[in-house]
Computed example of a mutant assay.
Amino acid sequence: MNRYESTGHLLLTPVDREAPARAVRLRELGLGERPDPELDAFAARVARRLDAPYAGVNFVGGERQFFAGLHHAPQAPASAYPARVLARDHGYCPHVAVRRSALVLEDVRDFARFAGNAVVDESGVRSYLGAPLTDRRGIVLGTVCAVDVVPRRWGTAGLATVKELASELVALFHAREDRRP
């Protein structure tokens, strides 16, 4: 059973008991503290594969989220989204991390828990697709996600694609780790 804490929004942010272990693991891997050009390129690939205006590689901390990889299409509507750093109660990636499973929201306004999220009101986010990045130790490091400002039918193909991309990205993290002295 998930426990949730009130954040002052309609959204209830899940309690993240794995955050301390995740922080240690991210430090070990050198992830989550600065923009990473390779992860920016990966986010652009996610956006292309899913035909989405926004995509990211996000690492969820105890108090904030950091998009080490971020992409927005040049023709995407101007807004405060995407930002490299978001509060933990903004967006949907913290839910993916705690649930340890993918999340598909074709229209976030269809779900009371998600409709009142600040990214809806402040940034115009209307749909979300994200999958966890689970490393070889079983720790969810963060998420790979795609976002749109209009409702989207991601479908089973979109879900399969985001999971496949998450798997590829975790393999990249493992290869980086294996090359370290």
Rank of each mutant, 00 (worst) to 15 (best):
V149S: 10
T161V: 08
F173R: 07
A160I: 00
F173N: 10
R180Y: 01
I139C: 08
L169W: 08
G142Q: 12
A175S: 14
D148P: 03
V162N: 10
T156S: 09
A171M: 13
L172I: 10
T156L: 06
A171H: 13
K163M: 12
R153H: 14
I139M: 11
L141Q: 05
A157C: 00
F173S: 12
V150M: 09
P151Q: 11
V140F: 00
L172R: 13
A160D: 12
L169T: 13
V140R: 00
T161P: 07
V147F: 03
G155M: 04
V149N: 06
G155A: 08
V162H: 07
G158V: 03
T156V: 06
P151M: 08
V147L: 13
V150C: 06
L165H: 08
R179D: 10
R153E: 15
V147E: 02
V150H: 11
E164S: 15
K163E: 15
V149I: 05
T161E: 14
L169R: 10
L141S: 04
G155H: 03
D178C: 11
V147D: 02
A157M: 01
R179V: 05
R180F: 02
A175Y: 08
H174C: 10
L169P: 09
R153S: 14
T156Y: 01
T143D: 03
L141V: 05
E168A: 14
R176Q: 15
L141Y: 06
K163C: 13
G142Y: 09
A160W: 01
R152Q: 12
V147I: 15
R176A: 14
A166T: 05
A166K: 03
L169G: 11
P181D: 04
P181G: 06
E177Y: 08
K163W: 01
V150N: 06
R176I: 12
L165E: 06
W154I: 00
E177A: 14
R179I: 03
R180A: 09
V162G: 07
R153Q: 13
E164H: 13
C145H: 05
E168G: 15
G158P: 04
D148H: 06
R179K: 09
S167Y: 06
V170M: 13
D148Y: 00
V170I: 15
L165T: 04
V147K: 02
V140S: 08
L165W: 07
T161G: 04
T143F: 02
R152D: 01
W154E: 02
G158W: 02
G155W: 03
A157E: 12
I139N: 07
D178L: 14
V150G: 04
T156H: 07
D178P: 00
A166W: 02
L159K: 10
V162D: 08
S167F: 08
D148E: 15
R176F: 10
V162K: 08
W154T: 00
V144K: 05
I139V: 15
A175N: 08
A146S: 08
A175D: 14
E164P: 02
A175M: 10
T156N: 06
C145K: 06
E177V: 04
V149W: 03
A171C: 11
L159W: 02
E177T: 07
F173Y: 14
R179L: 13
I139T: 14
T161M: 11
E164M: 11
F173E: 08
C145G: 09
V140K: 00
W154Y: 05
V162R: 07
R176Y: 12
V144G: 04
H174V: 14
A160C: 04
R153F: 09
P181E: 03
